[in-house]
Amino acid sequence: MSTAATADASSSGDTTEGSVRLLTLQSEDGEVFEVKETIATQSVTIKGMVDDDCATSTIPVCNVTGRTLAMVIEWWNKHEIGAVSNEKELKEWESQFDTIDDKSDRDDVYDLLMAANYLNIPTLLDCCTSAVAEAIKGKSTDEMREFFDIKSDFDEKEEDALRKENQWAFEN
């Protein structure tokens, strides 16, 4: 799937393979990916470019690294219509994004969220958003700070006041 960036990458652009058009995506760190147009248009952003005939040369995906873009393309491949016939299998495959207990998983999900947001991929955005939301649920404030590496910028007084104000929600 991925080919290293070559000197003539920028001129490769609009290649045709059979009847399927290939789009060339270039990540921020210069990795070049060739993706079928039918797959890449799962991204609303790219679809817009294709519709407006702006996708004839290399498309720079500026703020997404090659590593993340590879994951995004894997997502596209799995979600192409007819790629995975079994709904259950797809859900199982998606579930790898659901748990973000490891630091590395978390970083991946943040990167994917950014990429999904930038490229406007609703399915991926939905999956990653719910992963983070699930991780937030059921954690106390202190657990949250540790888990997400958040530094508190409240002074003690403010925090006490806030806790007091929200106390009612914890009394059930």
């Binding site: 937030i136 649920k137 059921g138 954690k139 106390s140 404030t141 949250m144 700070r145 997400f148 958040i150 530094k151 508190s152 910028d153 409240f154 925090e159 806030l162 806790r163 929200n166 929600a169 914890f170």
Partner: peptide
Amino acid sequence: CFVDNLFNVQQSCKY
């Protein structure tokens, strides 16, 4: 899900 989760995360920092 329920607001207590929201409050917990809100209490972690100003932003």
